[in-house]
Simulated scan of single mutants.
Amino acid sequence: MAKITKRYCEGRKSPYQLFWIEDGVRHSRFFETEEARDDFLRLNGHLDKRSFEALMGIDENTISDISYIESIRGNVSFRDMWEFWAKNHKTKRVLTLWDACDEYLRDMRKTEKAKPEHIRHVRRVLEVLVESFGDRLLQDISRKELENWLKSLKFAPVTVKNWRSNITAAWNWFEKNELIEKNIAKGLELPKIEMGEIGILTVEETERLFRANEKIDPEVCGLMALGLFAGMRTSAIPRVDYNEITMRQGILTPAEKTKKNRRNYIENLPDNLWAWLERTPKSAFGWCERKWKKRRESALRRAGLLVNGKQIKTPDENGKFPQKRIPPHNAFRHSFASYHVAWKRDFQDTALIMSHKGTDILFKHYRGVATKEDAERYFKIYPTGYNIY
């Protein structure tokens, strides 16, 4: 057995020495630091184990593995194979879905790549997912299981599609951070989305809404006008700042306030929108979303356009029950699109105002919903006493 000896040679530039005898030949190495010497010894520890006794200490499984590798390695040395493995091998972290989702949400908050409200939405989605798979190892969850889980959700197809997007984004992050080898969430099968007939407010209902509130709550009238006469999304309306409005010209929405994180400027808006905005107090801009929804709800109720759950179960004096959806879902934005298409007969103009990529949706779902005559009446709904030039 080769015996390795350590020495310290004072006065040398590299004073830390190792020497040993191998096959009758004396070998010696010098190192500048003791750490470098010990690292060399650790990497070449086989030098003091070249004995028959050491070989006899190898178990049968190891000998079998060595024999198999020997039969297939060809001209590649054992050292080359080891160095390649050490360079390319990465220890995989094995996490449960619960732990992986927790790390994903923490990273979203830390990097601030998403808005707080989006992070809250993603958390709600993942919480439901974790209820089904939380204790399972992330790598053991199959694509088929995710598809069946999505199909089991009791939501509208559009909502299921949104949830799939959030699940896919999470699995993208898992793959990027090497928690899984492959993103099984890409292209998950979904139920076919068929958009039903859109619901809008009639011209009479729209006018009644403004007349019932213009004296009592001029603030909410201005914000409702942004939806009904500019087609803004309900969620975007309370985020509009007064300084972002250039009267009689256009409205700027900075990138951080838009759904797609893109700066948006809309112009060529109808005259009656400016008439309502000009009489809107500045205090109306900058409301929180909750305040906006409550004030809008009160405005609809004053005009007799809101039916709540209790009213649905209560018949009126004639014994009739109210209809369920008053107003229809997204009625403000749908009303603007329908009447603007009928009024201008220019799909591209309407698409630009509504920030649509193209005109396909407008042509498919909004064409023919309203007449040109109704559209002209709709965009002539001005504040009482307003002088139209």
Rank of each mutant, 00 (worst) to 15 (best):
W85C: 05
M81W: 08
N148C: 12
E214C: 03
H334A: 04
G199T: 13
L105F: 02
E278S: 12
R295E: 13
Y378T: 01
D135I: 06
I381H: 00
I141T: 01
K324L: 12
F332C: 14
L150D: 01
F84W: 11
D102G: 04
L146W: 02
Q348N: 15
R239F: 00
R26Q: 14
P116D: 11
F285Q: 06
W276P: 00
R124I: 12
R136M: 06
V307R: 03
D217Q: 04
A212K: 08
E205I: 11
S338A: 10
F31N: 01
Y339M: 09
I237L: 01
I69N: 00
D65A: 06
D39T: 13
R26H: 10
M354Y: 10
R73D: 08
L273A: 04
P270K: 01
K90S: 15
R301A: 11
K161I: 12
E197P: 07
R50I: 06
W149N: 07
H356W: 12
S298N: 07
K3E: 07
E145F: 09
P383H: 03
A169P: 03
L223A: 01
E194R: 13
N330M: 09
S14Y: 07
L18G: 02
R29H: 08
E131Q: 15
I141A: 01
S71E: 07
P327H: 07
K87Q: 09
G45S: 14
P254A: 03
D23Q: 15
A170N: 00
F229H: 04
T253V: 13
G45D: 13
Y8C: 00
N272L: 02
K176M: 09
V307S: 05
H46M: 04
I266R: 03
E70V: 06
A255G: 05
E22H: 13
A275L: 05
A54E: 12
E289F: 03
K87N: 09
D360R: 14
I198M: 05
F285H: 07
P270F: 02
Q323G: 08
R79D: 15
Q17T: 04
L190I: 08
L228K: 02
N387T: 13
W343E: 08
N177Y: 14
R120L: 11
E22M: 07
Q323I: 12
C9V: 12
K176G: 05
H340W: 15
K310C: 02
N261K: 11
W82E: 11
I361K: 02
V130E: 13
G24T: 06
I167R: 03
P270Q: 05
E181G: 14
K151R: 14
D271V: 11
E112L: 09
T33Y: 08
K372F: 07
T62D: 05
P315R: 04
A342D: 09
P315N: 09
K310E: 10
H118V: 10
R239V: 03
S71F: 02
E53Y: 01
A299Y: 01
